[in-house]
Design a protein around this nucleic acid. Structure first.
Ligand code: FES
Ligand code: FES
Lengths: 138, 138
DNA sequence: GGATAAAAGGATATAAATATCCTAATTAAA
DNA sequence: TTTAATTAGGATATTTATATCCTTTTATCC
């Protein structure tokens, strides 16, 4: 479905949502907590950082965190950042073009999923998790 | 999103829907028509055939086609056949378990997509395409 | 200012997905 | 019964994704 890189990216951002602005997390800590290979996660964080999907400070005491701006980014941007280019503009079955006029067999199904990712921003993750979880990590 | 193999599989089955039972298609013809590497598609067809998602006859004049039984299979089976095992039971973000009790950030979004693939059978593709297309290949 | 801790970035190794090639088995036609 | 066309299946090559390693830059603490 998604590549490992994308999964890691979303899960990490999801985790960062619980460390509101100022709470910095080192790659080492994140990798351990989320059970992701540390150097690999490091690369992914770099990519996300370049695309302004997460924030970071270098040097001692530094780390990664989400700014208010970061939290407003739609979920789909995370996927696009890692999976590259217009993965969500393309047809899910790899047809040269995705359009309502010439839909593939999964077009309607996929469109709903895609649109829901477009409309949700990272911040919604907090609301969602807090509203549905009983024993979530604080 | 999906692997190339899965995309090829679904697109090919979609194509076969227009050649109702009896109309046999060689791998060569399918590969050419759908712009898929021929020997690679051949492997995929073998896999689909083993899982009874498509039918085939060997020898001269043989080829692949869909039986009525094949057409009743849910779309999700195609994905599972290629992508392997329980790709659709797993969490889309790779968490060890997917459940309503401990949902990931994409759980609700993904669940809808997954369920729509579970509920649609191949045959629906015909209905769907015929109802929405203006200038589809016959 | 020197030591330390962190992200940033380049280069490389490993594993998996994608693709190709070649031979065997099967069937139909000639 | 031979020949040709086709799927089935094994073995292998190529490309891409995944993962690791090492160096550089930046900031903090002492
Ligand atoms: S045409 Fe395939 S997803 Fe839109
Ligand atoms: S928990 Fe992630 S998809 Fe269900």
């Amino acid at each position: 479905m998604f590549s490992n890189s994308t999964k890691y990216a979303i899960r990490t951002i999801e985790y960062l949502l619980f460390n509101k602005e100022g709470g910095k997390n080192t790659v080492g800590a994140l990798a351990k907590e989320l059970d992701i290979p540390q150097p690999y996660l490091s690369k992914i964080m770099q990519q996300l950082s370049k695309s302004k999907l997460i924030s970071s400070t270098k040097g001692r005491g530094g780390g990664f965190y989400l700014s208010e701006e970061n939290m407003k980014r739609p979920l789909i941007d995370i996927v696009i950042c890692i999976e590259g280019k217009n993965v969500f503009r393309e047809c899910v079955l790899g047809l040269p073009e995705c359009s309502d006029d010439n839909p593939c067999m999964l077009h309607e199904h996929f469109k709903k999923f895609r649109d829901s990712l477009r409309q949700s921003v990272c911040k919604d993750g907090i609301k969602f998790l807090l509203s549905t979880s009983q024993s979530q990590k604080p």
